[in-house]
Design a protein around this nucleic acid. Structure first.
Lengths: 154, 154
DNA sequence: ATTCGTGCAAATAGTTTGCAGCAGA
DNA sequence: TCTGCTGCAAACTATTTGCACGAAT
C-alpha cells in the first residue's frame, strides 16, 4: 500500500486528479498533500493524525477535502466507533481488497487480507443474500473486533 | 429474533436480570422496557426510535441504560455511519449469529445470516489472521453495504 | 433512611458551514 | 478577472454529564 512499485505514487496522483477533474474539481496542493499523507500510511487514520502529519492543513479543510475525495471514490471513510472517523485510500485506487482489525480499546485499525478462495466464497454468498433481499450492494466489509497487541500488553 | 418460542421473552428478562445483578445493577422497569422494545424489533434501532416506541423514556436515560446493558453483554452497539448509533439485543442472548445489510442512503440496517459452512470457513480464516497478528479477537462482523429496496425505489 | 436510577437542562466534542481572503486558470 | 479552495470562527447535533428528585429495598 506504500510505494510497492516505483512510480505508483505519481500514477496515484494522476488517477485522483482525473477523478476530480471529471466532476469539475481541482486537484489542489492541499488535496494532493492529503492523498500523499494517506498513501504514506498503511492503515486508516483520523483527521487529527492527518493534520499533525501534514502540519499546515486546517481541520475544516481536511474534512471538506476528504468528503470531496470520498465522493469521487478516492478515499473511504471508516466508522470504527472510536471518537474520530478514519480515512484511507480507496481500494479501487490502491488495487487491493482488504479487511480491518479494529481495536476496541484504542480505536486503532490495521489491514489484513484473506485467501482468495475464501474471499470468493464470501462474495458468492453475499451476492445471493443481496439478491434475495433485493438489496443493491456496493461493497462488503469483514472486520475482526478485539484488542490489539499494544493494548493487551499495556 | 422475536417470540420464536413461547416463554423466550421471560427467559430473556431472566438472563438480563442475572447479568445486571452480577455487577450490582438493578433491572429496573425502565431497563426492562428498553429490552422489550429491542426484543420487539428484528433489526437494530436508534435511540430516537426507541424513545418514540417506548414513549416515556428520557433520551439521556436511554443512553445511560443502553450503555449499562452493553457492558453486561445484553445489547450491542452498531455504528452504521448514519447520524445515530443503533442498538440490538446481543447475539449471546438471542442465540443467533447474524450479519447486517446497511443502507448507505437511509441508515437502515437489516439482519441476515449466511450458511453454516461459509460461517465456519470465515471463522477459521479469521482465527488464523488473529493469531498471526497477535490480535485478541472477540467478535467479527460481516456487513453488506449498499442501498435498500425502499431507497432504490424512492 | 439510604441507595441508585431518572429526567431535565447544561456541557462536551466531533463535524459542518458561513464568510472573507487568496491562488490558480 | 473569475471561480472556487482555504482558514478561522461560529454553528450544529449526537451524546454525555451534573444535579436534584423519586422509587425501591
Amino acid at each position: 500500500m506504500d510505494q510497492t512499485s516505483p512510480g505508483s505514487r505519481s500514477a496515484l496522483h494522476d488517477e485522483v486528479g482525473a477523478r476530480l477533474r471529471a466532476v469539475e474539481q481541482i486537484y489542489t496542493a492541499g488535496r494532493r498533500r492529503l492523498v500523499d499523507a494517506l498513501a504514506d500510511q498503511d492503515r486508516p487514520v483520523t483527521i487529527p493524525q492527518l493534520v499533525e502529519a501534514d502540519a499546515g492543513v486546517a481541520v475544516s479543510s481536511a474534512y471538506r477535502n476528504l468528503a470531496v475525495l470520498e465522493q469521487v471514490g478516492a478515499v473511504e471513510r471508516i466508522h470504527s466507533g472510536a471518537e474520530h472517523v478514519r480515512f484511507e485510500l480507496a481500494e479501487a485506487l490502491v488495487g487491493d481488497h482488504h479487511h480491518h482489525l479494529i481495536c476496541e480499546s484504542c480505536g486503532r485499525i490495521e489491514d489484513f487480507t484473506v485467501p482468495a478462495d475464501v474471499e470468493r466464497r464470501i462474495e458468492q454468498t453475499l451476492a445471493t443474500v443481496a439478491r434475495d433481499a433485493r438489496f443493491a450492494a456496493t461493497a462488503h466489509r469483514l472486520d475482526l473486533i478485539g484488542t490489539c497487541v499494544a493494548c493487551v500488553a499495556g
